[in-house]
Structure formats: C-alpha cells, structure tokens
Design a protein around this nucleic acid. Structure first.
Lengths: 226, 226
DNA sequence: CCAAAATGATAGTTATACTATTAATTCTGT
DNA sequence: ACAGAATTAATAGTATAACTATCATTTTGG
C-alpha cells in the first residue's frame, strides 16, 4: 500500500489551491509544516507568517499557493478524506460479504489513526488530529455554498456515497444511508474529541475502544429491517 | 411556560462573562443584537466594533461584559442549552413511560426550532440557527480544557446526563448512553446544516422531517437489548 | 546558457482585537 | 433632591493578522 501511495496522487479540487503544492519542494514543505504547526498551535493561532518562518520562506510565497489559511486547511482535510477512501478500497477488496465490508468501513471511520505511512510527506497521525478538531471549520461558515459549487467537498461526498452503497447492499429499503454514514463520520470525530476533553459526554469502557464499539453496534442495529 | 420563563433566569457560569448581561439594559441589548448580528453575518465576520454600532454604544463598553467574542458566543450557546433543558422538563412532566419521555427528548433535540417566545429578549429561532452553525467553535479550540475546568460546559453536560438517565431507565444495561445522546445532539445540528448546504450527505423524504425520523429510529433501535 | 518562472526581501494597507484615559451620564442611598 | 459612586461614552492608541504590491535574486527547463 505504501508503495502504491507514493505513486498515486490523491485528487483534490483545483479550486482549493492557486498552485498545486505537490508540484514543488516549497509546496510540499508548506503542506508538511502546516500539518505540524496546526497540530501544535491550533488553527485559530496558525498564520501564514508563522508558517513562513517554519519553512524559512515568506508569507508572499505561501500566498502564491493558497488564497488564505482556510483553503490550506481545506486542502489538508480533503487530502485526508481521499486517503481514507483509498484505505477503504484496500480494506474491502476481495471481501464479498457486505456486512463484513460495512464493518470494516465503520472501523476505519471510527478508529484512531496510528499508522503514519512514511512514504508521504504528510504525517497522518497529526493530520487525523487536525481533522478531528478543525475539519468542521471548512464548512461551518458563510462560504460553504460557493465552496460546494466549486466542488471542493467531492472527496467527502464520494466517501459517504461509497459507504452508503454498502449499507444499501445489506438493506436496500433502509431510508437514511447518507445520514447514517455522515453521522458516523462526524460523530466519531466528536466522540474522539469529547473522550479527551469532555469525557462526561462519553462512556469509556476499559480494554476496548468504546467509540468503535459504539458505532459498530449503532450501525448494525440501525440498518436491521426488524 | 412563557410566563414562567420570564421569571426564571437560566443559569450560566459566571466565568463566561465579566459582568452579567442580564443586569442592565446595555447588557440585554448586547445579547439581543449579538444574536441578530451573528445570525446575519456569521461568527467569523462578527466583531465587537460592528456590534457596538448596532447597539449605538462602544467597543469598550462591550468589553466590560465579555472578555472576547468567543465568551459572548459561549454565553449564547449555553443559554440555549439551558433553555432546551427547561423545555424538556416541561415536555416530560407527568409522563411516566420512559419510552415516551425519550421519544419527546429526541424530538426536542432534533426538530427545527420554530417557536420564539416573545417574553425573552432573545430570538430563539435565530439563536437555534447560531447553535447549528457556530456551537462547535466554543469547544473546538485550545482553550477547551481551561474553559471546562471553569465549568462553562455544565448546561450541556446536564442536558446530556438527564437524557442519558432516561435511556438507562429503559435499558439499564445499555453501555453507551452518553455517547448516544451527544451523538444525537451534535448529529442533529450537523444534519440540519447538511440538509441546507450539503444535501448529498443527507436523505430527504417528502412530507416528513427526516432528521427527526432518522434519530428517533436510530435511538430506538440502538437501545434495544436484542 | 538564456529566458521564463519561481522565490525571496521588503514595504505598505486595512482591519481586528484589544487597552487606556478621561469626560459625561445615570443610578443609589439618605 | 443631591452628593458620591458606578456605569457608559468618546476618543485614542498598540500589536497583530491578513492580505497586496514591487522588485531583486535564484532556479529550472529547453
């Protein structure tokens, strides 16, 4: 998988960048260091000025790649979702039982990312923490409709659609496949955050990842026709 | 209920304000107009400068009530959750069947707010839109642990706890009551937002509020011991 | 090796997020 | 009703963020 990942490039809408950061050393270091810096100081405190110091470049140069820091964040988030979809395909190839496919999908969506494929210049562990804390900021704003019509949410929609299709394979009459899947994706992020910072909103059980267990059970029961 | 609401004051941690906005005309107009302004232009574009113009006062005066705009937002969000808990108590008094109580709670959490009690100086319809779009911004940041230790999240935790208790009345062995309830609260907000801006992530069904139906079914099935 | 493209260095603009000071107004208790 | 206290208004000022513009320097590809 790692060897494949370095050869394919995850497709992200051209509307999120002015110049493809994959296309140059500088662009790649913008991506790599922005992940480190956002993870460290949080998106609110993150500025292009600070990033330019980290990468020993200038604000103006970063602005040649991204219009503003929200677009850069969008790039990172959608890179992540494209990466998740890519891993999903890997985990379900050659599996025929749709129940098993769905189980693997839900685990992928709700488990903690611990794997950092050293073959990309992005630290996936840090990026997954950024996704948990910052991802909603790319759509919870007044630009969402324009961004959506620019197609930037495609990787997210594609992932949701793909898993919804598995749900419908199991139960073609289930009425809310997309809501179920987007509830799991967003919910898993929230529960991860809550378990760390607001544990009273969650339920911890020794010796198990209760976020994974919770969503596995929730999805299973929800799609039963009973 | 409205007559009661004007007499009780919803309890919000004193840590979110410097001076209680309920205690003066100026404070009340800060609250009232901030709801109008945030709903209109979004929290990112909202500034104390703009608010001061709306209320025909000054930035400095607003700063005497709230440390910064995040604290003001926190005040609004927790006012909302305290209001929701208050309405919950009203809707479930004299109901004995825990299944009916839970049903009413889930409806309250997932339905659209259409009721504006003219007896408060807060427009609840606008506030509910603010909660949908902006509420996560009060905890998805680097201050969350300090804010939490200041107790500002209490109204949210109280509401979650109260509904979790109903879940446990129905099924005392259910392992994830808090996660289920917080998933419904946050999820309902997200689904409301998606249905308006990213409908591909949801499922719309003619003639019904599919967000309410989805969460009613999800909760019901999840807590079945089967 | 030369031209074009990319990057760096620097400066400047506007807006935000505050803090400080003093004057004017309003409230409170006797 | 009035003095003193508290609150609010008016104004100014600082630091930083979020850009834009210009020109010099470096890198790269044919």
């Amino acid at each position: 998988m790692n060897t494949l990942l370095q050869n394919i490039s995850l497709s992200i809408s051209e509307k999120v960048y002015l110049k493809n950061p994959e296309s140059s050393k500088l662009g790649q270091s913008i991506i790599m260091e922005s992940v480190n810096l956002i993870d460290e100081i949080g998106f609110e405190n993150f500025t292009f000025k600070k990033l330019s110091i980290e990468i020993k470049s200038t604000e103006a140069s970063i602005y040649r790649y991204f219009e503003n820091k929200y677009k850069l964040l969008a790039y990172l988030i959608f890179w992540y979702y494209a990466w998740i979809e890519y891993r999903l395909l890997f985990r379900i190839t050659n599996i025929d039982d749709p129940n098993e496919k769905l189980k693997r999908a839900v685990i992928l969506l709700s488990e903690e990312v611990e794997e950092d494929s050293t073959h990309t210049h992005i630290n996936e562990i840090k990026l997954s923490r950024i996704v948990i804390t910052e991802s909603s900021k790319i759509y919870l704003n007044k630009n969402v409709d324009k961004d959506n019509s620019d197609g930037i949410f495609k990787p997210y929609k594609d992932l949701t659609q793909r898993i919804s299709d598995i749900v419908l394979e199991i139960n073609p009459t289930y009425k809310y496949p997309h809501m179920l899947v987007s509830t799991v994706i967003e919910g898993a992020h929230h529960q991860r955050f809550f378990s760390k910072h607001l544990p009273r909103l969650t339920d911890t059980i020794d010796g198990e990842d209760s976020i994974v267990s919770f969503y596995l059970e929730l999805v299973n029961k929800s799609i039963q026709p009973c």
